[in-house]
């Protein structure tokens, strides 16, 4: 596309119209912000940020409706984690049994290094038990590196509960939804 550039007139080359235009715009914004008090700034720590659905924040472990650990220590998330932020210690043959029915075992220790985590959501996607979710937390801080490695208790406490004990049900529904077109959301 060829943009037609008109020659500037004598008046325009005086730089005055641009100057007056600029004065108008800036004074209008100045007075509007001064009087109507509607600046676009969000006062962050006082006004919490609204996180939209689908936001990928920090990954936390969830409990089921009975308060039992959903994770069965299958270590799929540990294997899939691209930055190797997750470290799971399985219970082993002599470890504690799972605290819910229909599960063989639960992790002895489950650590996520939040300094390594890239919040990609692969752990949530790969989890067959719907036990790990990316929540809406985005401002994780600590005074030492060791504080940023979240252990099992902390992750479970932060994750809250997520009912839906029927294994694979949601995955099955999701798969069925994709067979029809257009996809229902």
């Amino acid at each position: 596309m060829i943009v037609k550039r008109n020659e500037l007139t004598w008046f325009e080359r005086l730089y005055l119209p641009a100057l007056i235009g600029g004065l108008k715009v800036t004074s209008r914004h100045f007075l509007n912000t001064l009087t109507t008090k509607t600046p676009v700034t969000q006062q962050y720590p006082e006004e919490p940020t609204k996180v939209l659905p689908g936001y990928r924040g920090a990954p936390y472990l969830v409990r089921d409706q009975d308060g039992a650990t959903k994770c069965v220590s299958c270590q799929l998330c540990e294997f899939v984690c691209p930055p190797k932020a997750i470290r799971i210690t399985p219970p082993g043959p002599t470890g504690k049994p799972a605290d819910r029915t229909n599960a063989e075992k639960m992790p002895e220790e489950f650590e996520i290094n939040m300094l390594r985590c890239i919040f990609c959501g692969l752990c949530q996607e790969v989890c067959p038990e719907e036990a790990i979710f990316l929540k809406s937390d985005f401002s994780l801080t600590g005074l030492a590196r060791s504080e940023m490695i979240y252990d099992k208790e902390k992750l479970l406490a932060l994750g809250g509960t997520h009912p839906g004990i029927q294994k694979w049900k949601h995955k099955l529904d999701e798969a069925k939804e994709q067979e029809t077109f257009p996809v229902k959301v």
Binding site: H29, F30, L34, P39, V40
Partner: peptide
Amino acid sequence: KVSALIQDRV
């Protein structure tokens, strides 16, 4: 402050 007001900030 003036720059903030001109740019609709706080």
